[in-house]
């Protein structure tokens, strides 16, 4: 059987003092839909080890990251190979009205880090990414360049970008092109 292929398999990572860009492939990703006030929501939180964050535009971290993506929707990011997670969540809230969908290959993750990361993203993201406004623990679904993305602020200058797989090649090329001037330093 041939190797698995990630959407940015051909992407040459950027590794400079000022800026790092690399794909984090094959994360386990689940889309979770549930009424946040329901018992099922609490049970899912227990099963994840991370309560579902209810403040819009934030994420919670534990063994996995749980990103708020809507008032009854979350995106769970777990390490590659967490195949059993979907089943465990279904079991935890058996019989309740929930939507749990494996979307692992729907998007891929790109990590952007380094002192110029905000300058890089500012070329194509209309959100205010100043640390006063969009610090660690914040996430947003928005548009970067011409692609819809989920953006999460990590510690320091790091950002995680989740982009639809079909757009990943475009966004990778766009990031590389935009990065050129930020590598000069």
């Amino acid at each position: 059987m041939a190797e698995r292929l990630s959407p940015l398999a051909g992407f040459e990572p950027v590794s400079a003092e000022s800026l790092r860009i690399e794909e984090i492939p094959f994360l386990t990703q689940l889309d979770v839909r549930v009424d946040p006030k329901s018992r099922a929501a609490a049970e899912i939180g227990l099963a994840l080890g991370v309560p579902l964050p209810t403040e819009p535009g934030t994420y919670a971290s534990g063994d996995c990251d749980v990103l708020w993506t809507g008032p009854d929707e979350w995106l769970v990011l777990a390490p590659p190979g967490a195949e059993g997670l979907e089943g465990r969540l279904r079991e935890a809230c058996a019989g309740a009205h929930v939507g749990i969908t494996d979307v692992s290959a729907q998007r891929t993750a790109v990590l952007v880090d380094g002192p110029r990361s905000r300058d890089l993203l500012a070329h194509g993201c209309a959100l205010d990414l100043h640390p006063r406004v969009f610090g660690p623990g914040r996430c947003a679904q928005t548009v970067l360049a011409r692609a819809q993305v989920v953006l999460a602020a990590r510690e320091g200058d790091a950002f995680m970008i989740l982009v639809r797989s079909s757009f990943a090649g475009y966004l990778g090329a766009w990031l590389l092109d935009a990065a050129a001037e930020h590598l000069l330093d």
Binding site: L5, P7, G10, A105, H123, A145, R146, A147, R164, S165, S166, F167, G169, Y170, L171, A173, W174, D177, A178
Partner: peptide, 18 residues
Amino acid sequence: GRDRGMLHDPVRVTSLHG
């Protein structure tokens, strides 16, 4: 600006494109 050539509009491809 940079919205020229390959970056003019996103090109969406499938996992088999290569």
